[in-house]
Design a protein around this nucleic acid. Structure first.
Lengths: 261, 261
DNA sequence: CGTGCCAGGTGCCAT
DNA sequence: ATGGCACTTGGCACG
């Protein structure tokens, strides 16, 4: 597919013959298109386990990355599937259309045979958007204030949004050993920028107080490759997930933040 | 859909207008059909966590059980979804078509807005087939109950699925020397987790009975590196393959498990 | 590559 | 409803 609502290599066929379906499939697989097929089929899987599913009408998705999934009329999860990067073989035999999806490591295969196709569709979706899973940074901060122990046992709040030279420190606390702890929060994957920001805060507070200061980066995850810089600068990472924050916020209920400070 | 390859309430439309799509959707949702829609959309989720996905072309499945899933061109898993039994709201606003899927307990919602539909399909799949997965952990347990000697000569069943403090013991027996044996089953490669789980059971039973207790981990194989922990904790490993279990189940036939206990 | 750990996990079955 | 746990778990980061 492409811009302007005009079809580019977009195919949609109602009740294609098995012969036509076979050639459409071969073509789509070669082009790595997103294929959607509905039809009456039987499914066999063998690999880590084995399974058999008798005849019935289902919807099959085959994606350009080489994944396949078979959906029955009910249930969120596919009844049979194969993860990305498997090899497909399409052939007709005995009046049936076969789709095989093979994978190595672990060695397993999924075989579907159709006696009737209800519809066939293929297109190349244009989708470059970024997916973000998050709570707001403010919600994360609120959760941490209400229960600092979600980050570390014994951690206690001293102040938040404290102004220092480079900016505002998200969370300013003291750990079980009495050491100062500066926490920098990121609502999604944290990268080098966040690490350097935290370092500036740590340096500033060290300069002001002269005390030993710990710098902790709290985020759902660390960008790959950022670990090195973190360690190099003597900082720490603590995983803090949207889920955990949501739990705390729910548990502590509607009470105002002011009650916790 | 129904027999004979003839359409019964089967709809397939290429590039429907948002207006038409809205009315088709309302109808399909009312009839609890299996809906497949491809289109350019934006997705927002809020509930246990929150997420946002910018504009892009995706495929959406809505099943008759009230589940919905949004598939991007790559990846086995849907980027956004909602499990069965949620409520749908469809409306148009500001030149966009909105689909909302709401759920209570946990309270969460998924909202999709489309500016263009690539194709719309709906049908009522006929699928009454039974799905069979071979050699599940339960089947392994059944095989072991029917013939404990597959694990060790002289082993006899005392109880299964026995409740102790940490959870349920898969198989609880007595060996040729009269010692208690606790078996933890894994249908595939067993790792550290399984060993620790077994250890908890052994400790619990030891505490209760005061008797000498053997802990046996039974699985097709042990993860490399797990051997050390096993020995360290005084536990044992016995290889038990799906094939062997299948043999036992086949030999003992269709007789019910209750005949063996 | 394997190994470990998290997930908006989901699903199943128990109390 | 809540808890324990398996899952063809899938996915990602790390050694």
């Amino acid at each position: 597919m492409n811009v302007g609502g005009q079809s580019l290599e977009f195919i949609l066929v109602k009740f294609p013959s098995l012969e036509l379906s076979e050639s459409l499939l071969r073509n789509s697989l070669k082009r790595r298109e997103f294929v959607t097929v509905a039809g009456n089929c039987e499914c066999r899987y063998t690999g880590r386990a084995s399974s058999h599913l008798g005849w019935g009408e289902r919807l099959i998705l085959i994606k350009g990355d080489g994944s396949i999934q078979v959906h029955r009329p009910k249930g969120y999860e596919p009844v049979n599937w194969q993860p990305p990067q498997c090899n497909f073989y399409v052939h007709r035999s005995g009046g049936l259309l076969f789709i095989e999806a093979h994978r190595r490591r672990p060695r397993e295969s999924l075989t579907l045979n159709f006696d009737r196709i209800i519809f066939y569709s293929s297109f190349k979706p244009v989708d470059n958007a970024e997916f973000n899973l998050y709570v707001s940074e403010e919600q994360m901060r609120d959760a941490l204030i209400r229960d600092p122990s979600i980050l570390e046992d014994g951690l206690e709040l001293v102040d938040f949004e404290r102004k220092v030279e480079p900016g505002f420190i998200d969370f300013y606390g003291r750990d079980a050993d009495g050491r100062l702890v500066i926490v920098e929060l990121k609502r999604s994957q944290a990268g080098k920028e966040a690490i350097l920001q935290l370092k500036r805060y740590v340096d500033a507070v060290l300069k002001i107080t002269g005390q030993n200061v710990r710098g902790v980066l709290a985020a759902p995850r660390l960008k790959s490759g950022a670990q090195g810089l973190l360690v190099e600068l003597g900082l720490e990472f603590r995983r803090l997930t949207p889920r955990k924050c949501a739990e705390v916020l729910k548990k502590s209920g509607t009470r105002k933040i002011s009650e916790f400070i």
